[in-house]
Design a binder for these strands. Sequence first.
DNA 1: GTCTATACACAGATAGAC
DNA 2: GTCTATCTGTGTATAGAC
Lengths: 229, 229
Amino acid sequence: MSYPKFKKSVAQAKADLYRETLARHPKTVRVKKEATAVRNLERIFAAALKVANEKGFAAMTLRDLSTAAGLSMGALYAYFSGKEELLAMLQEQHRSVTRRILEESLVQVQNPLERLRTAVRTHLYLSEAMQPWFFFAYMEARHLSADERKKSMESELTTEKLLADLMTDAVAAGALAPRDCRMAACLTKAMLQDWYLKRWKHAGRRITVDQYADAVLAAIENYRDPGEG
Amino acid sequence: MSYPKFKKSVAQAKADLYRETLARHPKTVRVKKEATAVRNLERIFAAALKVANEKGFAAMTLRDLSTAAGLSMGALYAYFSGKEELLAMLQEQHRSVTRRILEESLVQVQNPLERLRTAVRTHLYLSEAMQPWFFFAYMEARHLSADERKKSMESELTTEKLLADLMTDAVAAGALAPRDCRMAACLTKAMLQDWYLKRWKHAGRRITVDQYADAVLAAIENYRDPGEG
DNA sequence: GTCTATACACAGATAGAC
DNA sequence: GTCTATCTGTGTATAGAC
């Protein structure tokens, strides 16, 4: 799937995702009309990502958020019980989207090397389409409660394990040179993360997501373990 | 130079670095006795990195810092004029150390491929020996004033440019396969950063800095541009 | 040089009108 | 459902004693 197509499919899925979040938090979102609740949650989340990605979540005041979202302080509290819960909601939404899209992208692909390539490209496409979410999740992970932070670290390790497993399969199929797949997956993850963490740099160089994906895949596919060069 | 040796040489250089910082900020550090000033600056910086790397600089209160450093609120203000200046001092110290150590490491090395290998290994050694500084500089860059943020971005690009130039030389010498050196350097930087950003992960796996350096160098040296595989 | 005590501003959160 | 007005805690920064 090309990136423009991918982006549209993600946009389409957004409404569903907001309804899911509402269903997951029936006690904190006190607004009953679904259409209203979805519309305002969208505005609140978008505003929170915008402000927090500029100055950090801790430095973002609820007055900032109120202004950016176009809702009063009082109204905000109809959607979350406090700043900490807002943070947890954002992180949870991000994790579930990532998990689902990555899984869906692989169901149709059989060839081991193609499965690896699909996972890498899909991850980059997704982090391109939802860059503010990925940036936020990465930078604010350490401000989470112990419980939420654990989930965040598990999510990181799960993604990396997926890459390592796909690589192991490709090696077994003879499509890739043998290697320490855990280390190779670890280096891959670092390159994937750089795409959304240093967007200003890549944008300034007019690098497209497809060019970056090609480069990362070239690095992975040519990789040899130390001493095996 | 082995990592244990490197670590000692960095530790030795620390006293100099604190004296330099004092010389750079004669107006804000009002403490005149150098020995006292150096000792307390060390404690303040160490405490600030410790607390800020746990909860974030914005969330760190000066009361936290006061407790962690073992100095009263009033005493802290003899060393900086406010939180913002403390942040700038930490970033500046980090940048000057990095620049100096990287430059020094290369003066004795002639062979192009060895120069590239030295730069990569030294960067990893340095970020290992001063992990809290590197982590802090990365995570708090966006909280800087416009002016300081610009310096931070320039520093990032300078390091990357150095890697790209070293790679260009190695390619010209026939020691590396031809490639888009800017892109290859960009991917390299991402892998270098992961070492200090995700330390919990590497430590849990008992990966040493030398093992990681070997893996990164293997990735760089085997790299081929897309379509050239 | 370092301390304690305090001024002042602003944060998160809520009450109650509409 | 959303607003305005307000409560209360806590943050940065300083004054003045030692």
